[in-house]
Computed example of a mutant assay.
Amino acid sequence: MPTILRDDDRPDRLRIRLHRPEVRNAIDLETVKALHAVCDELERKPRILILCGSDGVFASGADIAELLQRSRDEALQGINSRLFDRLAHLPMPVIAAVDGWALGGGAELAYAADIRIASERARFGNPEPSLGIVAAAGATWRLPRLVGEPLAKEMLLVGRIIDAQEALAAGLVSAVHAPEMLDAAADAVADRIASQDPLAIRHTKRLMGLPLDAHPRADDDAQAECFVSPAKRERMTAFLERRKA
C-alpha cells in the first residue's frame, strides 16, 4: 500500500495526502522516500505543493517503531530533517492543510511549509522529550520563529499541545476552517498563488529564505531578471489598460 496518495494533480499544483491510517499517518522511511520523489519532481518542474493528512489526522509523528531501532549513525543522517529542509526549499510555495493531530515529526513537517491552514480539530505539539529524544527535524529553530520563543519553549520543553484557535492567535496558521472545507480552503490559497507570476513567486520565496547579509544585492538581481521577462510587460500593460477602462 502506498504511504502517500496523489490526491490532486494539476499543471499548477500537486496535492499529496499522507496515507498510513493504521498508524495515524506516522512518517516512516517509506514515506520519507516517497516525499523525496515528490521533491525530485517539483524541483524539475516547479508547482505549488499542498500537503494533507487523511482520516482526520495530519501526521502523528515519526514512526516510533522505526525510531526505536535507529542508531547514532542514523540520527546523524538527519533522515527527517533533510527531507523537511528540502520541502521548505522547493521553488514554489508549500501549503500544509492540517486536519487533526500534527505531533512530533508531523508538526515539524507542517512547520516546514510556507503557509499553514488548519481545521477546527487541528492540534499541534512536540512531545519528543517524553520519548527520550529531541525535536530534531526543525522544531527547535522553526517553531520559535513562527510563534515566538515563550510559546515555543512551552511546546518543546513542557510538552504543551495547542489547538487550532491558539495556533491561529499565535500566527502558526493563517486560517481555521471546518474540516469539510479544508481542502477547498487550501485550493483557494493555491488559486491566489497561481494567479501571480510564477517567476516572481519563485524569486520572492527564495529571497525570503536568504540571510540578511544577502540583501539587497540578491533582491536587485532577482528584480533584474523579472524586469526583462515577458510576463512583466504583459501584466503591467494589462494593469494599465484596466485602469483606463
Results as ranks from 00 to 15, higher is better:
residue 140 T to P: 04
residue 161 I to Q: 11
residue 195 S to N: 10
residue 148 G to E: 10
residue 208 M to C: 12
residue 3 T to D: 05
residue 98 V to R: 10
residue 208 M to N: 11
residue 219 D to V: 03
residue 164 A to F: 08
residue 91 P to S: 06
residue 101 W to N: 01
residue 147 V to M: 05
residue 1 M to E: 09
residue 28 D to R: 01
residue 19 H to E: 07
residue 43 E to F: 04
residue 215 H to S: 05
residue 138 G to I: 13
residue 80 N to L: 14
residue 207 L to H: 04
residue 243 R to T: 07
residue 58 F to A: 09
residue 85 D to A: 10
residue 226 C to R: 13
residue 120 E to R: 12
residue 220 D to V: 07
residue 217 R to W: 13
residue 63 D to G: 06
residue 170 A to F: 03
residue 37 A to I: 06
residue 14 L to Q: 08
residue 158 V to A: 02
residue 209 G to I: 12
residue 19 H to M: 11
residue 112 A to G: 03
residue 217 R to A: 15
residue 157 L to N: 00
residue 65 A to P: 06
residue 34 A to L: 02
residue 104 G to F: 12
residue 131 L to N: 04
residue 84 F to A: 13
residue 20 R to T: 12
residue 135 A to P: 12
residue 96 A to P: 15
residue 87 L to H: 00
residue 167 A to V: 15
residue 190 A to T: 08
residue 220 D to L: 12
residue 34 A to K: 02
residue 156 L to E: 00
residue 44 R to P: 01
residue 120 E to W: 01
residue 220 D to P: 00
residue 126 N to T: 06
residue 184 A to S: 07
residue 167 A to Y: 09
residue 79 I to R: 10
residue 164 A to D: 04
residue 124 F to I: 15
residue 225 E to Q: 15
residue 127 P to T: 06
residue 72 R to C: 05
residue 156 L to D: 00
residue 40 D to P: 05
residue 153 K to H: 06
residue 176 V to Q: 06
residue 26 A to G: 08
residue 171 G to V: 10
residue 143 L to N: 11
residue 143 L to A: 12
residue 97 A to M: 06
residue 23 V to L: 06
residue 1 M to N: 08
residue 229 S to D: 12
residue 1 M to W: 05
residue 9 D to K: 03
residue 153 K to P: 00
residue 208 M to Q: 13
residue 82 R to M: 03
residue 60 S to Q: 04
residue 135 A to K: 07
residue 13 R to T: 00
residue 189 V to W: 12
residue 77 Q to L: 14
residue 207 L to P: 05
residue 215 H to P: 01
residue 22 E to Y: 02
residue 34 A to Y: 02
residue 145 R to V: 12
residue 226 C to D: 03
residue 47 R to F: 01
residue 71 S to L: 02
residue 160 R to G: 00
residue 191 D to K: 11
residue 119 S to Y: 09
